[in-house]
């Protein structure tokens, strides 16, 4: 995995500190061109991975990268699926089955599953999950996606409900079909690792909030630090700046000081911030 990953929250109006700021960002990035400009800056600064939600607008980013293979020779995507609001809103709007139908490219398949006595619950959840993964991955066709993540809303929903085997299904399918490493995003790192161990997902890539103020680190800072230091998994730190609640140097010193953390994902919109953050990480890595 690359050490520095570029995130996408800033492009889609996600900001944990301010709705106003989030909206201003939505306006700024309404054209995919504006997103590409920032991605280009990050790429120029040596950040080769774009860790992104399978938001429908990412499809346009994919098109652009596909159309310019030379320019983006080293560019990689780490897709994070699904873009959950799309599903949540659809479930509210259409009900569960109808919503599923809408997201599946091969309606026939689901129809057959539902009809032929092989009801949803017969419950071929594994088969259904595969259809949904394929639907989400469609936009990345022909692009490099060496790591594919399950978004935290889904990871943590499955974790909460106790669908422990689902993690193994996801991991196996992503490896087999996309030749990619499975990754899991969670807000409940220690608990998820317990379940992944039990489910037989070995040495998993897990991305979670890791920041000095313990923002959204369920189980607490101490347990996180101990977990990172002692357990067998490949940690990625996100929300390291806690949406700006911590100064960049202090924030990155905390993360870079934990040697087991393999990668750091961050989002930024200006060349100055991108360069500063990437430089800080590289400097801190050199020192220690």
């Amino acid at each position: 995995m690359e050490r520095i990953l570029f995130g996408d929250n800033q492009f889609f109006g996600v900001n944990h500190m301010s709705e106003e700021k989030a909206r201003a960002q939505s306006v700024r990035f309404k054209d995919t061109q504006a997103i590409m400009e920032v991605l280009d800056i990050a790429y120029e600064e040596g950040i080769k991975v774009f860790m992104c939600t399978t938001h429908e607008r990412i499809a346009e980013v994919c098109d652009h990268v596909r159309a310019n293979p030379e320019k983006y020779a080293d560019f990689q995507f780490y897709p994070c699926m699904p873009y959950a609001h799309k599903y949540a809103n659809a479930v509210t709007e259409y009900g569960m089955i109808e919503a599923l139908k809408r997201f599946l490219p091969e309606q026939g398949k689901l129809g057959a599953m539902l009809k032929g006595g092989m009801s949803l619950a017969k419950k071929d959840v594994e088969g259904l999950a595969q259809l949904l993964i394929d639907a989400e991955m469609k936009m990345f066709h022909g692009l490099r996606t060496p790591v594919i993540f399950l978004q935290n809303v889904v990871t943590d929903l499955l974790l909460g409900l106790g669908f422990d085997d689902a993690f193994k299904y996801f991991a196996d399918y992503v490896k087999e079909k996309y030749d990619a490493e499975p990754g899991f995003i969670t807000m409940n790192l220690p608990r998820l690792l317990d379940v992944l161990d039990k489910a037989g997902v070995d040495n998993p890539i897990v991305c979670s909030n890791i920041n000095k103020i313990a923002f959204r680190m369920c189980g607490g800072k101490e347990l996180y630090e101990k977990t990172i230091a002692t357990r067998r998994f490949r940690p990625i730190a996100m929300s390291v700046l806690a949406s700006g609640a911590i100064s960049p140097r202090e924030a990155l010193e905390y993360v870079c000081g934990q040697k087991q953390i393999e990668s750091i994902v961050f989002g930024a919109s200006s060349r100055g911030n991108i360069r500063q953050t990437a430089q800080l990480i590289r400097d801190l890595d050199r020192i220690s």
Binding site: H16, M17, S18, V153, D156, L157, G160, M187, N188, R191, I213, A214, F215, R216, M217, C218, G219, G220, A242, S243, A245
Partner: peptide, 14 residues
Amino acid sequence: YTTELTDEVWFYLR
């Protein structure tokens, strides 16, 4: 801000 106003929870979903 929410980062300072929010207490830690034992399990986070949404």
